[in-house]
């Protein structure tokens, strides 16, 4: 029992950091770049993706014995598309303003390769419990990345966070940040930053190992 518990924790955490779908796997770039011009849009998109990914993983993993492998991709897509359509209508009814902002990108969640990727790579091969935990981790990691990008772009592009002005009326907005090029620029700089952090960490581990070797 303790072993599976550890396993589950590991499956959850890997999506958050080590195998982060955006910063490490560089998947799901379309929504990542398109709707992160403000923190609130990023969170809304993150939640929508969260719901679709967790729901799809749950269904795919519990049906994995009945899905013939020749048509598995079609079945995954039907499942994902159903969840996306449900999300689309629900958002339109509950939060029409957010839906208007996200616009065409909600239906495009179907094409988010991160979601299909998790079904094929994980949910189809693991128990329901692990599949859901994996989906929770990946979806949280995706949402974390979306939020980071959205927050940076909103702070620089509007001088605000969640619509609350941070610097007063004299702030000069960086207009490029709320335009598409700002998405590419910010994402590129964030990837740069994360690989720098990773490299530093590896260097430190190597140095520690070296020091230990000398001590012995």
């Amino acid at each position: 029992m303790p072993r599976t518990k550890e396993n589950a924790y590991e499956e959850f955490v890997k999506g958050l950091w080590r195998d982060n779908p955006v910063f490490v796997q560089v998947l799901g770039m379309c929504p990542m770049l398109a709707v992160t011009n403000s923190a609130i849009n990023a969170i809304a998109m993150g939640l929508a993706t969260f719901f679709v990914l967790v729901g799809s993983s749950l269904l795919v993993s519990s049906l994995r014995r009945w899905i013939p492998k020749q048509i598995r991709i079609s079945c995954y897509i039907i499942i994902i598309a159903t969840f996306v359509t449900v999300t689309d209508f629900t958002l339109q009814a509950l939060v029409p303003k957010v839906h208007k902002e996200l616009g065409a990108f909600i239906p495009l969640i179907v094409a988010n390769c991160m979601i299909l990727g998790r079904q094929e790579a994980f949910a189809a091969k693991h128990s329901v419990r692990l599949a859901v935990i994996d989906a929770l981790g990946m979806a949280s990691g995706f949402m974390f990345a979306l939020f980071t990008l959205g927050a940076v772009r909103e702070i620089l592009g509007e001088g605000a966070l969640f619509g609350v002005s941070l610097f007063g009326a004299d702030f000069e907005p960086w207009i490029i940040m709320i335009l598409p090029p700002g998405g590419f620029l910010t994402l590129g700089l964030l990837l740069l930053f994360f690989s720098w952090v990773k490299e530093r960490k590896q260097q430190m581990i190597a140095r520690l190992a070296e020091a230990e070797g000398e001590a012995q």
């Binding site: 000069e172 960086w174 207009i175 490029i176 940040m177 335009l179 090029p181």
Partner: peptide, 10 residues
């Protein structure tokens, strides 16, 4: 190009 896309007014 960065400046003129970022601060078109200035």
């Amino acid at each position: 190009a960065f400046l003129s896309a970022t601060f078109p007014n200035a």
